[in-house]
Amino acid sequence: MKVFRLEVITPERTVFDGDVQSVTLPAEDGAMSVLAGHAPLVATLEIGPAKVVKADGTKSWLMLGDGFVEVTHNHVRVLADVGEPEDTIDLKRAEESERRARERLKSKAGDLDLVRAEAALARALVRKKIVRDLRPARDSRHP
């Protein structure tokens, strides 16, 4: 299978840099998969899980904050506010931040806080989904 280079860059560091077979991203218009030889593209991304199939065929997940993807000649760059590889996600912390975000939404503070709480909630839910559903599903298929 043909591979291409994927970089996941956040403002504070590069989270992932390596050859992959494919990557599935949470684009604004819906999930989008990129394979080698994709046409040049710039798209906006939402908060969501990204699936990476590495060059050796192993799959892994990333939690992405909102951002962009830029596809050039066999080089995909993902620019996101936040990027967390699955092994850095902590379920307890995700649940904790989910609880906090829900509380803030309930308290109905200013509009701005609401937007931020919604984003925090969305991130927490993606983290939970990765740890609770996506990762176990993969691991049970390949014991």
Binding site: E28, P40, L41, G67, L79
Partner: peptide
């Protein structure tokens, strides 16, 4: 080369500008 812009160049710019400013 021509780039595909999704959903639209305007929307991308709208989201790019805040990032640009923060940076």
């Amino acid at each position: 080369t021509d780039y595909l812009m999704e959903p639209s160049p305007e929307r991308i710019l709208e989201r790019l500008l805040p990032r640009y400013l923060e940076m």
